[in-house]
Amino acid sequence: MNALKEPTLTTTKFILVTTQRSGSTWVIDMLNSHPQIAAYGELFLDKGKGSPTWCGGKDVTFWNTYFEEVQVPFKKTIKSLFIFKYLNHVYSPRSSIKSVGFKLMYPQMERFRRELLAYIFLNKILIIHLIRANHLDVILSQSTAAFRGVYHLRNSESTENVKLHLNVLQLVEQLQQQEEKILQAKSWYSKLGLPYMEVIYEELVADCRSFNAVLSFLGIKVDATKLSSSLKKINPKSHAELIENYDSVRDVLQNTKFCELLR
Rank of each mutant, 00 (worst) to 15 (best):
S99I: 01
K5G: 15
L204A: 04
V205T: 12
L16V: 10
Y151S: 01
Q178D: 01
F62K: 06
A3G: 08
T8H: 07
V90D: 03
N235C: 07
S230I: 09
S22H: 10
L192E: 12
L261K: 06
F67M: 07
L192W: 14
P195L: 00
L164H: 08
L136K: 02
T256Y: 02
M1H: 07
K181V: 05
L166M: 15
V199W: 00
Y91Q: 05
D59W: 02
F14P: 00
Q108C: 10
I15R: 00
Q71F: 13
N2P: 02
F74E: 15
Q254E: 10
N2T: 09
S22M: 04
E160F: 07
N32S: 05
L45Q: 12
T11N: 10
E241A: 14
M1G: 14
S80Q: 14
E69F: 09
A38L: 01
I78K: 12
L140N: 01
E42C: 06
C259P: 02
E173K: 14
H89Q: 11
E202G: 01
Y246R: 02
L204G: 03
S92N: 11
L4N: 13
F258E: 00
S24N: 03
F82A: 10
W54S: 13
I78M: 12
K232Q: 14
T53N: 09
Q176P: 03
Y91A: 05
R154H: 07
P35M: 01
C208A: 09
V168G: 02
F74H: 15
F258L: 00
R132F: 02
V222K: 13
V214C: 11
L175S: 01
L45G: 06
Q178T: 06
Q170L: 13
R21D: 01
M105W: 01
I120S: 09
L192M: 15
L231G: 04
S80M: 14
